[in-house]
Computed example of a mutant assay.
Amino acid sequence: MARWQPGARERLQSVALRLFAERGFEQTTVAEIAAAAELTERTFFRHFADKREVLFAGQEDFLQLFTDPIEAAPAGTPAYELVRRALEAAGEFFPLERRTFARTRAAIIGGEPALQERELGKLASLKTRLGELMRDRGIGEPTATLAAEAGVTIFHLAFQQWIADGEERSMGELARERLDAMAALVSV
C-alpha cells in the first residue's frame, strides 16, 4: 500500500464515489475504498471519520460559501440583496468541472434514505445560519426567516437543475434565473 503520498484525500474521494456508484453505498466498505485507492484504512480515517464523510466533508466550507458574502456586505444592505450575494458566491463555487462529481454524488445520496436525511439536514443548517445572520444584521422577522428560507430554496432548485441530465447552463445563471422568478412573483 502506498503511504504518505500527496493527493490521498482526493484519491480516496474519487475512488469512493466510483465504488458507491458501481456497488452501492451500503455495499462498499472502507477497506475496499482504501485498497482500491492503494492506501491503508488508517490513511482513510486520517481524512474521513467514516464513509459518509466522503460525501459530506466540507460542511463548514459550504456554510461559509453563503455566509461570507453576507458578512462582507455593507450595513443596511436589504435582505434581497444579501440573498443575491450569497447565491452569486454559490454559483462561483460550482464551476462546470464540478458538475460530474455533483451528479454522481446526488445519485448516490438519492439512493439512500439515511444520506437523503443528512443532505436535508445540511440545508436546514444553512437556513438556520442564514436566518441568524440576517437577524444579526438588524433584519426583523419574518423577513429574516423568509429571506433565509427563500435563499436556500432558490439554491436547492438551481442546484437540482444544474445537475440534471442535459443541463449546460452555469450554476450562477440558474440561480439568477430562479431569483428573478421569485422577484417577479412578489412584484405581481
Rank of each mutant, 00 (worst) to 15 (best):
G151N: 12
Q64D: 14
G140S: 13
E22C: 05
E177F: 01
E149I: 08
E41D: 14
Q5F: 12
E22D: 14
Y80R: 12
R52F: 07
A175P: 05
R85Q: 12
A181R: 14
A147L: 02
L174C: 09
D136N: 13
A158N: 05
L12E: 03
M171G: 02
T104L: 13
L17D: 00
A164V: 06
M1A: 15
A158M: 06
H156M: 05
A184P: 09
Q59V: 05
G110D: 11
L174H: 04
H47Q: 05
E32V: 06
V152W: 01
A107M: 03
A148E: 04
A147I: 04
I33E: 03
R85S: 06
T104R: 12
V54F: 09
A144G: 07
T29F: 06
R176K: 14
R98D: 00
T77V: 13
M171D: 00
R84S: 14
L39R: 06
E32R: 14
T29R: 06
A181D: 14
M171K: 02
G58W: 01
R98S: 03
A75F: 09
L39Q: 05
P142R: 09
E119V: 10
S170K: 06
A35L: 12
Q160C: 13
L87E: 01
D165V: 08
G131L: 00
D50L: 07
R46F: 14
P95Y: 08
A75P: 11
L157E: 04
A107C: 05
F66P: 01
Q13H: 10
G110E: 14
R105P: 00
